[in-house]
Computed example of a mutant assay.
Amino acid sequence: MGLDIYLYTRDQEQANNVHDKASEAFYEREDWASESERKAALEALPPYATYEKVASEKYPDHLFGRRYLRSSYNGSGFNRAVPDMVGKEHDLSWIFEPVRGGSDEYSFELTEGSLAALEQAKARALQVAAELGGCDPLRTMTESGMVGPQDHLWSQPPTEEQVLDWYRSEKAKNGERDDTWGEGYSNGKGTVLGFKKGLEVLAVTLGRDILGRLSAVIVYRSEALDSYIQSAEIVAEFCDEALSLIKADGSCFMHWSG
């Protein structure tokens, strides 16, 4: 789950409105003469037009595209990671604030009246890319007491030697995988950040996790900075795409899901 932002053309939105009305009428109807009649009516519903995947011109293999943006809810999502790194709440919501205003709608039309706001959003996206380029990409993560089957937990706080033995046993079980944090994992005894690379840990202190439990809080330097810079630059491309659709068709539609 997470935040998904889509860009639909005017024609796609109109087709989907037709689909939605026909679907609503279909599911409200109860007086079908037979099951075959109901199935035939279902198959005859106007098709739903999904958004068109348009790759970034600069980074065509990136998850973000000119008509699709995403931020997962976990710590690696754009909306969590970028504010941590730049020290400001400059996430996707902030970038698109000029476009959305105070609206909490999940779908809204962009027209010629939206051109200036889209230019402002594009400028904000490029500002975030510049901020990321000049920052020290610091992140934090919390590690609380693990849960699991009793025979998988520490029976009492381990010694340093026991912790090293545990890590070595995990490495032996998992071979020589070149894990980074993105491919790490947790079990009843702790979290493994990698066997060859891991994280560049800068500081550790005692704090609380999201559930309020005592937790080790680790400060580390993210190695994914370039990907977030690319994400911000593609957000600017997303704005350009909306501008071009408005100029071509008179309008387009932005869907905000999450």
Rank of each mutant, 00 (worst) to 15 (best):
N74Y: 09
N74V: 02
N74F: 05
S76H: 04
G77H: 06
G77W: 07
N79P: 07
R80F: 08
V82M: 03
V82R: 02
D84N: 12
D84M: 14
M85P: 06
M85Q: 10
M85I: 13
V86P: 01
G87C: 02
G87M: 03
K88S: 11
E89G: 13
E89W: 01
H90L: 05
D91N: 15
D91W: 04
L92E: 05
L92F: 10
L92A: 05
L92V: 03
L92C: 07
S93R: 15
W94F: 13
I95C: 09
F96A: 07
F96D: 06
E97S: 15
R100I: 05
R100V: 12
G102F: 01
G102W: 01
G102K: 14
G102S: 14
S103C: 03
D104A: 13
D104E: 15
S107L: 14
E109A: 15
T111W: 07
T111L: 08
E112D: 15
S114T: 10
L115G: 01
A116S: 13
A116L: 12
A116H: 09
L118V: 09
Q120S: 13
A121M: 09
A121W: 09
A123T: 07
R124D: 03
R124Y: 10
A125D: 08
A125N: 11
A125M: 10
L126K: 13
L126T: 12
L126W: 03
Q127R: 02
A129M: 00
A130P: 00
A130H: 00
L132H: 04
G133Y: 00
G133S: 03
G133N: 00
G133F: 00
G134C: 01
G134S: 12
C135K: 01
C135A: 12
D136G: 04
D136Q: 15
P137G: 13
P137I: 12
P137D: 14
L138K: 14
R139L: 13
T140Y: 10
M141V: 12
M141Y: 02
T142G: 09
T142Y: 01
E143Y: 02
E143T: 01
G145E: 11
V147L: 04
V147R: 06
V147M: 05
P149T: 04
P149R: 10
Q150N: 09
D151M: 07
W154S: 09
W154T: 11
S155G: 08
S155I: 12
P157Y: 05
P158E: 10
P158T: 12
P158K: 06
P158F: 11
T159E: 08
E161W: 00
E161P: 01
E161I: 02
Q162I: 03
Q162C: 01
Q162V: 04
Q162D: 12
